[in-house]
Structure formats: C-alpha cells, structure tokens
Computed example of a mutant assay.
Amino acid sequence: MNAGSLSMPPAPQCSFASDNAAGVLPEVLDAMVAANEGCALAYGEDPWTTRAESALADLFGGAAAVALCWGGTGANVVGLACLLGPGEAVICAEEAHIAVDEGGAPERFTGSKLLTVPTPDGKLRPDDVLAVLYALGNQHHAQPGVVSITQSTERGTLYRPDEIAAVAEVAHDHGLHVHLDGARIANAAAALDGDLRSFTTDAGVDVVSFGGTKNGLMYGDAVVVLEPAVARVLPFVRKQTTQLASKMRFLGAQFEALLADDLWLRTAGHANAMARRLADRLDGVQGVQVTGTPDVNATFVQLPSAAAVAELQAWSFVWEWEPARHEIRAMTSFATTIDDVDRFAAGIAAVAAQHG
C-alpha cells in the first residue's frame, strides 16, 4: 500500500486514532441480543439495569448510587451538575477533556465556568488547586466548587492513589467536591493492579464518570456517586440533562456483560499492553522519539517533521497531538492486535526514514 510516493507496509486493520474506533466486545453484543427477547419496563425498571447498577456499586464498596447514561460527555455533565451550586465553577487541567473536547457542554448545561490550570502532564496537584482558591468569598468571581481530575489523563498519564487523595484533601478542606472523569478508568485500574477503590472511594472522590464506550461498549457510560448527600439529586439531574434512556435494559445489559468475570479489566489490560509494545517497537528507531513510557493505552510519538505526520496520516490516520513538536497520539484498545502494533510501528519507521 502506498501513501504518496513512499512505499509503505500493509496498514494495520485497527485504527490507532482512538479507542473509540474499535468495535463492540462480542460478549456485550451477545448480551444486547439476549436482552432483546421479550418486553421489559422502561427507564431502568428492568432486571438488567438493576444488576448492572448493583455490580457497579459493588466495585466502589457497595454504598454508591449509580446512573447509566448515553455517553461520556453526558456522564460528565450529570456528574458535575450534581455537585455544582449557583455561581460555582470547576477547577480542571487545561488539557482536560471537559475543557477541550466536549464542545462547551459542561459550561452550557451546568451554567458553571471552567477554571483551567496549565500542567506539564495533565495532572492537577494540590498547589494547582490552592492557586485558584483566591476567588473564594468574592462575589465578583465564580466560586470554585468542584475539582475535576481525569484518570487516566488525556496526556496518557496516571494518578497514583496518594496523588488523588492529596488533591481531594485540599478540595475538601476548602469546601469543594471532587469529580473524577473516568472515560478510561478501566485502563487506569488495570495499570494499578485492578485496585479501583484505592484511587476513588478510599481517596476521597465524590463523583465518578465511569467509562464504558472506550472499553468495548456500543454506547454507554455511568455516573457513580460516592457522597451520600449528593445521591438524592442524581436521578433528577440525569432526567433533566436528557441522559435517561427509555430502553435502559440495553445499557444495563452492556454493563452487566462488561463487569462480569473482570472482562472490563482484562480488555483494558490488553489495551495497555499493546501501547507498551508499540513503545518498545519504536525504541531506538532513527528519527522517532517516544515521549515517555505509556502508563495506559496511549503512546505519544514525536516524528521528524510535519510532512512525516501527514504521510503517516495518509497511510493510517492518527491524530496529531502537538503540531509544533510533530507529536502524534496513538491509542490502543481491546481490539488492537500484535499484528496491528507491528504494522503501525513499521509504518512510523518508514515515514521517519523518508523524512528524517
């Protein structure tokens, strides 16, 4: 296969542009087909949703309130809206998905302001939060009310449990809540040996957006409320923000299948392993620099030039992350194969050799 005049190896079957490019887990599809037999009550009054909500709550210690939503942006809007009061704002990293890639939905639907903080790696530190709290008590400024962290981050970095606990402690000491955007929470949990509670319930997080779509669902993410005082408003906020599905059983069936027998962790672990393999295959390739060691399922690669990036995209599309650095972000998924990784690495090496 050719990209421009450059002779290239066969392109990978699965795209590295996003883990959203992957299809649906076979177990999830089978569960949806099975749930399609017969009739069931609407709006979550069905056994699939009941079982899925119970399974999600158990992951976090059993006392959580759960609401299934259509997708990640909707889950973030619901989660944040449950926590925000009048005039309050959300502190988040400058690269956070809620700030960059959700079309302003959190601000439009919650009526709040996002207070973004530049960070070198997408991770907020306690000092980052403290630096924004000067506005507390001043009626002329939006009042910080929530700290939102992303686990794992858009930069592919990973918070350790103690790092989240430190941010949560500062937030709570100043009367703020903590929201965790977990679109890739499975990848984070897999990287931390499956210990989900250590960086959520035990670390002081109040509300979690639990990602399913990026980990093999057809559609669907969940809001998990860990702060009992907030749980009361969850069903009403979900309804008002248009995230209540009428045929909820198909969301419930998907989550039930994903959570059974640790499928959610195994699929995420595979995606993480494929990212590490890609980084290893590119180690030492002339003209290519892997930016950091992959913590989860994201590999960042710096190419020699903009022309090299364009050549690679024409062969097998991938998003450019930092155009000034000619840096791409390659995302792996449950569907990524060893052959996909090896082909993609070979393609990167070919364009680097041509443009180095």
Rank of each mutant, 00 (worst) to 15 (best):
T293H: 05
A183W: 00
C82T: 10
A352W: 03
P118V: 04
P26V: 03
G72Y: 03
F317C: 13
A308V: 07
V301S: 11
G87K: 10
E256K: 11
R325T: 01
L114C: 13
A268Y: 04
Y43I: 02
E53A: 09
E102I: 01
A131C: 08
N20D: 05
A75R: 02
R343H: 05
R125Y: 08
D162M: 10
A67S: 07
F317I: 12
T201I: 00
E37P: 08
G74F: 09
G284E: 10
A273E: 10
V170F: 05
V117M: 11
A93E: 03
Q243W: 04
Q313C: 08
I338T: 06
E45L: 06
P126D: 12
K113H: 13
D339Y: 00
V146C: 14
A308T: 07
G194E: 06
A190I: 05
V146I: 15
S7K: 13
E27K: 07
T201R: 01
F109A: 11
F16I: 08
V225C: 08
A203K: 03
W315R: 02
E45Y: 06
D195E: 07
G220N: 03
R249V: 06
M8P: 04
G194W: 09
H355Y: 07
F60P: 00
V288E: 11
E322N: 06
D19I: 00
I98P: 04
S148Y: 14
G292C: 08
I149R: 11
E327L: 07
D340P: 00
T119K: 13
K113P: 04
I328V: 11
V117A: 14
V230Q: 01
V100G: 01
N36L: 05
F344Q: 04
D342I: 04
D261G: 07
A105I: 06
L217E: 02
D221I: 00
A52E: 05
M218K: 08
F255E: 03
A34C: 14
V146T: 14
I348E: 06
A229L: 10
H141P: 13
A55P: 00
P161R: 14
P126E: 14
R249W: 09
S209L: 07
H140K: 15
T200F: 03
D162R: 14
V170L: 12
V146W: 14
F250Y: 12
A245D: 08
M1C: 09
A279G: 14
A257Q: 04
L259R: 09
R197K: 04
V290Y: 08
E95V: 09
G287Q: 04
A350W: 00
F16V: 10
T150S: 15
A229H: 08
N76V: 08
S246M: 08
A67N: 02
L68G: 12
K214Q: 11
P294I: 05
A142R: 15
V318I: 15
Q354L: 05
S333C: 07
V146H: 12
Q13G: 03
A307W: 01
P10T: 03
A350Y: 01
A273C: 06
M331W: 10
A346H: 06
C39N: 06
V223R: 02
S7V: 09
L136M: 11
V178M: 07
S246D: 06
K123M: 14
V285W: 07
A190P: 09
H355P: 02
Q289F: 01
D342E: 15
L251M: 10
G220A: 03
V100E: 11
V132N: 12
V78P: 13
